[in-house]
């Protein structure tokens, strides 16, 4: 088993996301995270980033199956194409007071999380980073009054000059 970060460049037409998701559910593949947004100025192409896991054979299948979809331009397994960057953003609400509240704020600073909302009993932190960094921060917040989380899922791109197109 391994984890794979797969970037898919697709024609931005209606139903394209349903095709991708339907492929994963229909064939029993995992989706650990999925993001999608238009990436061209004219909104014609979207980039879907999927973090999935499976045996090497399954991941190869996933790539081949994605490549078979008519509106798919390109499928790239970033985890195999050399070094890449993967980032996620999370909005994290922590509710509490007293020592726990102070501790949450100190840890947030250590993690370079930004406070984007505060009340006398709560903070909303904004944190960007690799998924495991977000996970580590959330683990620390749990005993300190972690109340709600919203995560974007992973956006990823290769290092250096090479591009998906």
């Amino acid at each position: 088993m391994r984890s794979a970060t797969i970037s898919v460049l697709v024609e931005n037409e209606s139903g394209v996301l349903a095709r991708v998701i339907g492929l994963f559910s229909g064939r029993g593949y995992n989706i650990d995270s999925l993001t999608v947004a238009p990436v061209e100025r004219d909104q014609r192409q979207s980039r879907i980033t999927i973090v999935t896991s499976g045996t090497e054979m399954v991941i190869e299948q996933i790539k081949a199956q994605l490549g078979r979809l008519v509106p798919v331009y390109r499928v790239l397994d970033l985890s195999r194409e050399g070094p890449h960057l993967a980032r996620e953003l999370a909005l994290i609400k922590v509710v509490g007071s007293g020592e726990a509240r102070q501790e949450a704020l100190r840890l947030a600073e250590a993690f370079r999380a930004r406070v984007i909302d505060a009340s006398t009993e709560s903070f909303v932190f904004e944190l960007t980073g690799a998924s495991d960094k977000l996970d580590a921060f959330l683990d620390l917040m749990r005993p300190l009054g972690l109340a709600e989380v919203s995560r974007t899922g992973v956006a990823a791109i290769a290092r250096g000059r090479s591009t998906i197109t």
Binding site: M57, E60, Q61, R68
Partner: peptide, 11 residues
């Protein structure tokens, strides 16, 4: 002709 047929069940 279909790359997804390759290594689907038999390597």
């Amino acid at each position: 002709i279909d790359p997804s047929s390759i290594n689907k069940s038999v390597t």
